[in-house]
Each structure stands twice: as structure tokens, then as C-alpha cells.
Design a protein around this nucleic acid. Structure first.
Lengths: 111, 111
DNA sequence: CCGAATCCAATATGATACTG
DNA sequence: CAGTATCATATTGGATTCGG
């Protein structure tokens, strides 16, 4: 019946909402790095060596704009910058966990 | 300890594996449409009006290459083409379901 | 160390038209 | 209906350099 068809459209709209929040190749890897406690620019880059400073910089700004992280600057001599996860960002962990699980089972090595 | 650090790197690698399989804005919406039984080119396009034929065509080829769908041509007068989900594609449903759930809760309307 | 700035290449996406 | 062809734009990625 008609409900069915609307259901499909809603489900599609919902994935698209999620996709917009985590779009691109880097946001989730960055979040995973941060979930694990690594929240300095340099730390993240060490965890994701393929990313360049230019892209990392941009992605961090995007994540800040999406309210998923907050940028905290602490004055001092080399001026320390730290990125903190928001509570909002933790609502994504079920999604991220499922993706890690899937990736683990379907990478070349299996598990 | 050292295990911790390796754990992070593994988790990052696993999300990246998953991201590669579903990269772009369209693969998941297409799969969602197909999970619901809509498997003709035209049906998918009706469910996702924003996608153009050019992009849909390319994405379907990608999905075929990733073994997530199969293209089936049945001869006849207007020659019917149908895309079928592979059993492999169903391993993604936990990921997709979490994404639908998240999108539902965080779209403008809430739920 | 933490980025910003610049320049340029590669991909992704989009609009439109057209064919078997 | 199921695409392909062409062209244009947008987004992303990479390399390198520079400054606080």
C-alpha cells in the first residue's frame, strides 16, 4: 500500500541525513582516532598518515561546524590546541561501531 | 600500553575499509531502495529523484564491481533489466540500519 | 608543533541531450 | 525503459611553503 512507499522514501532520506554528517573519507577515521583519546592535530595525523595537513585542517573545521567537536586553545609557549568531542558526537558511536565491525570482517584478512 | 595504540590503528583501518565499500553520496540510498524491493533503474531513480541517470549508471556499475549487486538482463521486447542484491550486500544491513536510526533522530524534525 | 596559504591535479557530481 | 555522450562545476586530494 501507500505507507510502504513512503517508508522507503523516509528510510532513504534518513541515510542521506547521516551521510551528510559524516561525508567524505576522513571524518569517521578522525572521530575514531578521537574516541580513542587522541585529540591533538599531530596525534590525529600520526594515526591517519595518509591525510595531509591541508585536508585534516579542513575536516576539523567541518566537524567543528557540525558541532561534533570543539576546538580548545590553551595559551602557553608553543600554544597548545586540542580538539574535544562533544556529547553529540557520541550519538554516532553505534554507527561507527557497526562500520568497524563490518570492516573487520570484510577486510582482506578477515578477522 | 602498545596494544592500545595498535587497536586505534586497527579501528581506523576498519572504518576505512567500510567507507571504501560505500563511498559517495549515493551507494547507500541505492541499497536502501533495493532492500525495499525496488530494483529497476527507473524505480531507483524515482525513489532518489536528485540522482541523475549519469550518476546512477556509474554507481550501479561500482556496486556491481563491489559484488553488492548483480545486473540481470532478460530478453524481451523492451528488454528488461533488473538489479538484484547479493547475499553479500545484506551483511551491510546492520550498518545501514544504524545510519537510518541516527538520521531519523537527528533530522530537522526529530522523530 | 599547529596550522594557514597557495597552486594545481584528480574525482565526483550535475545538467542536458540523445539513442537502441 | 535503460542507459550513453558531452560539457561544466564542485569538491577533494596532494605537494610545498610559510608563520606564530
Amino acid at each position: 500500500m501507500k505507507e510502504k512507499s513512503n517508508d522507503i522514501l523516509n528510510r532513504i532520506a534518513h541515510v542521506q541525513t547521516t551521510l551528510q554528517a559524516i561525508n567524505g573519507k576522513w571524518k569517521l577515521p578522525i572521530l575514531v582516532s578521537m574516541y580513542a583519546g587522541k585529540s591533538r592535530f599531530r596525534d590525529i595525523q600520526r594515526n591517519i598518515p595518509q591525510i595531509t595537513t591541508r585536508v585534516l585542517s579542513k575536516e576539523l573545521k567541518d566537524l567543528e561546524a557540525s558541532k561534533l567537536i570543539i576546538r580548545i586553545v590553551t595559551d602557553g609557549h608553543p600554544v597548545s590546541v586540542e580538539y574535544k568531542l562533544t556529547t553529540y558526537s557520541y550519538t554516532l558511536t553505534p554507527v561507527v561501531d557497526e562500520m568497524i565491525k563490518w570492516g573487520k570482517q570484510h577486510s582482506k584478512g578477515g578477522l
